[in-house]
Nucleic acid binder design. Structure first.
Lengths: 111, 111
DNA sequence: TGCGTGTATGTCGAAATTGACATACGTTGC
DNA sequence: GCAACGTATGTCAATTTCGACATACACGCA
């Protein structure tokens, strides 16, 4: 969990798939990190979609703008709890959160 | 976040659906709690399925039997992080975890 | 009955996460 | 230029969560 932080710093904002091999992450470690990053990205999207600022969201969470920035930025100091709570707060349902967690390979029916 | 703990203490080990109304939980609060309980239950199932004891799992997590008991028991002191990490450790994939998070209304195709 | 195994519960110091604050960065409009 | 706004980053004391330990409970078996 210490090494993981470095990696995030350098890899911030990418697909983490490579980082796993780049540094020796166990499967569950890397899956966990990927999950968090996916959630973080989604939070930012949703917040903006709803026309909220980080400060707005912070108030709803009774937290601070700086923490929201860290949540969205995938900061190492942010727990999954806070991440998920934030998503619920911006209005996602369990189902929607689940979809984000499931990951990309979501197959879409062709029109 | 303070009140929520009380509730959990009293409600420990049930379906939380009612508790939401029983005590005045916000929607996202109750959804969050339900998620955690669903995950906790699932962890116990999976662990047993794999023929592991709590001690076994604890070692894999480099944690202790008592903490595993708390995780599975839905103890208030357990973070979502630890819960999800445990599930990954017993072998669940992101997809499978997502399913648990999504919740019950899972429609099953008739044979 | 006592013993071994698996699980639950309470407590505690240590470690991680938190909100808050200061402050820097970047953009937009004046 | 420089405000104003939104966002990022670093720090820190307070709170939460952690692993660990002790201990109690529940069961099956000799």
């Amino acid at each position: 969990m210490k090494a993981a932080k470095r990696k995030r710093l350098e890899a911030d904002g990418w697909i983490v798939g490579d980082v796993k091999t780049f540094l020796g992450l166990s499967d569950s470690e890397s899956e966990f990190i990927e999950m968090k990053l996916a959630l973080a990205e989604n939070l930012k999207q949703r917040r903006i979609q709803r026309g909220m600022t980080q400060k707005d969201l912070a108030e709803r969470l009774s937290s601070s703008q700086s923490r929201v920035a860290k949540i969205e930025g995938g900061d190492e100091s942010v727990s999954l709890d806070l991440l998920v709570r934030s998503l619920l707060t911006v209005g996602l349902t369990r189902r929607e959160i689940a979809k984000v967690i499931a990951g990309k390979p979501r197959r879409r029916a062709a029109s």
